[in-house]
């Protein structure tokens, strides 16, 4: 697991419009700079916000990345809830749910 690299990829993308453009034009040229395992790479390729949440991405990074991927707020929240049902609670970090389900 290379959560650090996964989060750094999203951190760099979230704050840099030019990098976002390059990412959309040639994703591999960006991803090759970050050490991701197969599950993380698949989650990025699929823009699977729910799985990225489960992997432990800090919510403040994930929220911005989800918006960059075009997720509307209700869809973003729902993606995380659905992922909890599929994968169980968050595996790392401080953004685990309090009861593994979500409060609302």
């Amino acid at each position: 697991m290379s959560l650090y690299g996964l989060q750094k990829l999203m951190y760099e993308l979230n704050r840099d419009e030019a990098l976002q453009s390059q990412y959309r034009a040639d994703r591999d040229s960006i991803l090759s700079n970050f050490k991701l395992d197969a599950e993380e790479r698949q989650a990025i390729d699929d823009e699977d916000i729910g799985l990225l949440y489960i992997l432990g991405v800090n919510g403040q990074i994930l929220m911005h990345f989800a918006a960059m991927c075009g997720y509307a707020w209700p869809d973003y929240i729902q993606a995380m809830r659905d992922a909890l049902q599929v994968h169980g609670n968050v595996r790392a970090g401080i953004y685990a749910t309090t009861d593994g389900q979500g409060a609302i």
């Binding site: 919510g59 403040q60 929240i77 995380m80 749910t97 309090t98 979500g102 409060a103 609302i104």
Partner: peptide
């Protein structure tokens, strides 16, 4: 607050 999580709103 529990922002940017499924607990958002709590």
């Amino acid at each position: 607050h529990w922002p940017a999580t499924p607990d958002s709103g709590k």
